[in-house]
Simulated scan of single mutants.
Amino acid sequence: MLLLKDEQATLDAGRQLGALLRQGDKLALSGTLGAGKTTFARGILEGLGYGEEVPSPTFAIVQQYELPETRIPVAHVDLYRIDDPDEIFELGLDDILDVGAMIVEWPDRMPDSFWRDALRIELEITGDDNRRLTWTAGSAWKDRWPLT
């Protein structure tokens, strides 16, 4: 468990994680609205070298970041507006993992089997600006997680 005292701490933790990301990695970001999922994802993208504004992918659903903008290609996915699980397969998310990594907000919209080797992050609001970050790390994250 990590306690994140403010937005900057959430960004910093994301940056640390971004530095560890590699091809084929799946990150599942869970938490209620306003828990800091997109802020954490922004930090991850900064840790991958992205220096521009990071919009929330809520309306686009999938926001792609490619070389040379980032160290590896990555897709930032927000499944909040997906109601039918069949719609997810039309997004081609498996293809993304062939060349890069994936950060997914609202991962509960996908089957549990997809997250077998993933790093599952849960962000919980514990105060005005405070967040608690907990995780479950799949075997692909052995020796890389947790953050220190």
Results as ranks from 00 to 15, higher is better:
residue 6 D to K: 09
residue 86 D to H: 14
residue 55 P to I: 08
residue 130 N to V: 14
residue 95 D to C: 04
residue 40 F to A: 03
residue 139 S to P: 14
residue 117 D to I: 12
residue 88 I to N: 00
residue 76 H to R: 07
residue 46 E to Y: 06
residue 39 T to M: 08
residue 74 V to S: 04
residue 128 D to A: 15
residue 17 L to S: 01
residue 140 A to Q: 11
residue 142 K to Q: 15
residue 74 V to D: 00
residue 58 T to L: 01
residue 111 P to R: 13
residue 55 P to N: 09
residue 27 L to C: 04
residue 75 A to Q: 09
residue 142 K to I: 14
residue 71 R to K: 11
residue 103 I to P: 05
residue 36 G to D: 05
residue 108 D to T: 14
residue 99 V to T: 15
residue 62 V to F: 08
residue 83 D to W: 04
residue 10 T to V: 07
residue 54 V to N: 01
residue 146 P to T: 14
residue 37 K to Q: 01
residue 105 E to Q: 07
residue 126 T to C: 14
residue 107 P to T: 10
residue 8 Q to E: 13
residue 12 D to C: 12
residue 5 K to T: 13
residue 145 W to E: 05
residue 15 R to Q: 09
residue 111 P to I: 11
residue 33 L to R: 04
residue 75 A to S: 10
residue 19 A to I: 02
residue 41 A to N: 03
residue 28 A to R: 08
residue 105 E to L: 08
residue 138 G to N: 02
residue 43 G to K: 02
residue 109 R to E: 07
residue 52 E to D: 15
residue 90 E to P: 08
residue 129 D to I: 05
residue 105 E to T: 04
residue 39 T to C: 10
residue 28 A to W: 04
residue 40 F to Y: 09
residue 18 G to L: 06
residue 131 R to Q: 10
residue 16 Q to H: 04
residue 101 A to G: 10
residue 49 G to H: 03
residue 96 I to W: 13
residue 131 R to P: 02
residue 12 D to K: 10
residue 77 V to E: 01
residue 74 V to Y: 03
residue 31 G to H: 02
residue 138 G to L: 05
residue 25 D to T: 12
residue 36 G to M: 10
residue 42 R to W: 05
residue 95 D to G: 12
residue 57 P to K: 08
residue 97 L to I: 07
residue 59 F to P: 04
residue 113 S to W: 11
residue 62 V to Y: 01
residue 80 Y to G: 00
residue 98 D to Q: 14
residue 59 F to M: 06
residue 41 A to E: 02
residue 18 G to S: 04
residue 15 R to D: 06
residue 77 V to F: 05
residue 117 D to Q: 14
residue 69 E to A: 13
residue 85 P to S: 08
residue 114 F to T: 09
residue 105 E to C: 08
residue 71 R to T: 08
residue 98 D to N: 12
residue 41 A to P: 02
residue 64 Q to R: 14
residue 57 P to I: 01
residue 53 E to N: 13
residue 118 A to Q: 05
residue 108 D to V: 13
residue 51 G to D: 08
residue 7 E to R: 07
residue 40 F to M: 11
residue 115 W to G: 03
residue 126 T to G: 09
residue 22 R to V: 13
residue 68 P to G: 00
residue 92 G to T: 05
residue 80 Y to T: 04
residue 134 T to Y: 09
residue 113 S to Y: 13
residue 109 R to F: 12
residue 115 W to K: 07
residue 71 R to H: 04
residue 39 T to W: 00
residue 30 S to W: 11
residue 117 D to A: 15
residue 122 E to L: 11
residue 63 Q to T: 09
residue 68 P to V: 06
residue 50 Y to Q: 03
residue 22 R to P: 03
residue 131 R to K: 10
residue 45 L to W: 00
residue 72 I to C: 08
residue 1 M to P: 12
residue 53 E to Q: 14
residue 136 T to V: 15
residue 27 L to F: 08
residue 42 R to D: 07
residue 46 E to D: 05
residue 100 G to K: 00
residue 5 K to S: 15
residue 5 K to G: 13
residue 75 A to V: 03
residue 74 V to N: 05
residue 55 P to L: 11
residue 66 E to A: 13
